[in-house]
Design a protein around this nucleic acid. Sequence first.
DNA 1: TTCGGAAATATGATATATCAAATTGCGGCG
DNA 2: CGCCGCAATTTGATATATCATATTTCCGAA
Lengths: 239, 239
Amino acid sequence: MNRVGDILNYEALSRGDTLAEQIHRQLVGAIIAGSYAPKERINVRRLAVEMGASVTPVREAVLRLVADGVLGVTEKSAIVVPERGLDEIAEIFDIRRTLEGDMAIAAAKKITDTDVQNLKDTQESFLAALDAGDYQKVLQLNSVFHFLIYQRAESPLRLEFARILWLRIGPTLRYMYPLLHKGRGDHRRHEDIIEAAERRDPEELRNSILADLGSSLEALRRYKQEQAALPPRRVRKRA
Amino acid sequence: MNRVGDILNYEALSRGDTLAEQIHRQLVGAIIAGSYAPKERINVRRLAVEMGASVTPVREAVLRLVADGVLGVTEKSAIVVPERGLDEIAEIFDIRRTLEGDMAIAAAKKITDTDVQNLKDTQESFLAALDAGDYQKVLQLNSVFHFLIYQRAESPLRLEFARILWLRIGPTLRYMYPLLHKGRGDHRRHEDIIEAAERRDPEELRNSILADLGSSLEALRRYKQEQAALPPRRVRKRA
DNA sequence: TTCGGAAATATGATATATCAAATTGCGGCG
DNA sequence: CGCCGCAATTTGATATATCATATTTCCGAA
């Protein structure tokens, strides 16, 4: 369906092309795109209908996300999109710094000319989507951009962990770009990354990526701060 | 049943106390204890009978392990205990160094007197099990020993990743201790760790743990080397 | 005896059924 | 007008059924 599926899918662990697999892939894509909001409840039967499958493979896919901590269960065993507290967010970014920093170092020298071109193309689409206000696409393309680089690190395990972390913050990131956009934030972070990639400079690549992470974390922090001040809001149901 | 379950279980993600949960816990314990050998095939129906449950929750538990990369699936979608190559093992240890090193630093100052006593007790049992040749217990106690410390880091996400990594090498470690024992290896690694823990010295704690990891990796490396030279062996079925 | 392959059996994936707990709706009471 | 409580409905967990492959068994031909 989309390239996000290709890049963000757990190929290493994928079992053939089972129904549960496809559904998982679809859910992953949706989560990365920010289609699920924190606190939203996941309904297995409804998903099953929507996807034209029985509950078994859907449940399998959903529980896989639960196992990865991407989705959560309440005390009353309702499956929900977890809302992350600042502590959790900070920890996620802390580990991301390590993992993605290491991958940047490892990847730098292995980046191909095609990769650079892909980065540029992706960035172009990214900016276009941003201007169009299509934040689903923005989030998708952002992840594609980063993982284009990380893939080159040839460290499948780190890649896997990184994917899990991205999925975990996915729903929270949802609110970030609209805010950044309003503030006309610094979208040249990616430009720095591309430059570093072109030079195949490990340190520079790592640092520019860490800077990007830093500004994301900062934005989320600000967002959370604002939210904490506002009155609690209700969550709308899914059509 | 055993304390390993308590320490190594994914409390953070556990959904109430579902059947699937219990089965998962049991499997985790067994894997950590080295009860499953690489290349061994996992049979969902048989497990279901053994555990007196239907296949649904067993499948759920097993697939959760597959999702975590602890178990694998072959091209013909048979569920197996994966055999790890040297590359994979090296990568696992590489990430373990980072994660467990960070946790050691974070944990050092927070270690309580009770923790130290628990470490000493665990180590005593560990040595006893080693002398008794009870390698299942050796492996269990080794994991308990390490996670006693890691828990104090109060970094649930790192802890989770670490658990996954331990589970991934679990089946491979199976062969390590008998070998180390024969060679009358350096089992004072743990003593160093205990000392560092008593002093609450972050750097020392980290280094002693890294040293422990290093000797494990070395042992596995030697083992793999030897194995590569030997004729391929057949895998026996599970009673 | 050994090998090829068909029949029997086992296994994973999916669908459906059932049950208990949780949620929702609704009507009546204050 | 609001809120309390019971009935209807929903939902997650588990069990069972079914189907398509894969694996094993076993028999006959070379």
